[in-house]
């Protein structure tokens, strides 16, 4: 899959982040997720039934489950291995697992853009 670097977003402290085009929105069926690589970071990108895009770390923090294979709704993502659920708003688990890492994601002209920290 092609990775195009768009812009580097400077931050006042800490590592810089970069927006990457990871693929086309049409590659993700409504309500499902697919795995992409953004600047060397593996991410799972979801296109919810309400049309919104969300990107998370690809592996479940609980036991490494493939999150892109999970069920979704407008509030949470459910990991397919042990049914731990994570909120889109802040990545917190609703049932006591470690939180999930979220990445900003949006659509530009049919492309999925994900912003991830630069890998040193």
């Amino acid at each position: 899959m092609s990775i195009t670097e768009l812009t580097t977003v400077p931050t006042t402290t800490g590592p810089t982040t970069t927006e990457h085009v990871v693929g086309r929105v049409a590659e993700i069926p409504p309500g499902e997720g697919r795995t992409f690589v953004a600047g060397g970071t593996q991410v799972a990108v979801f296109r919810l039934r309400d049309g919104s895009l969300h990107a998370t770390q690809a592996a479940c923090p609980h036991a490494g489950g493939p999150l892109a294979d999970g069920l979704t709704d407008v509030d949470v993502l459910v990991c397919p291995l042990h049914q731990y659920a994570y909120r889109w708003t802040d990545g917190a688990s609703t049932s006591g697992a470690a939180p999930l890492r979220l990445f900003p994601a949006h659509e530009v002209d049919g492309q999925v853009v994900v912003e991830v920290p630069d890998v040193p």
């Binding site: 049409a26 069926p29 697919r34 795995t35 593996q42 592996a59 490494g64």
Partner: peptide
């Protein structure tokens, strides 16, 4: 049935646990 139905979901994580 859908685009990417059989696309790997975890290609980069070293697999067999």
């Amino acid at each position: 049935a859908t685009p990417g139905q059989f696309r790997p979901a975890l290609p980069l994580v070293p697999l067999p646990k």
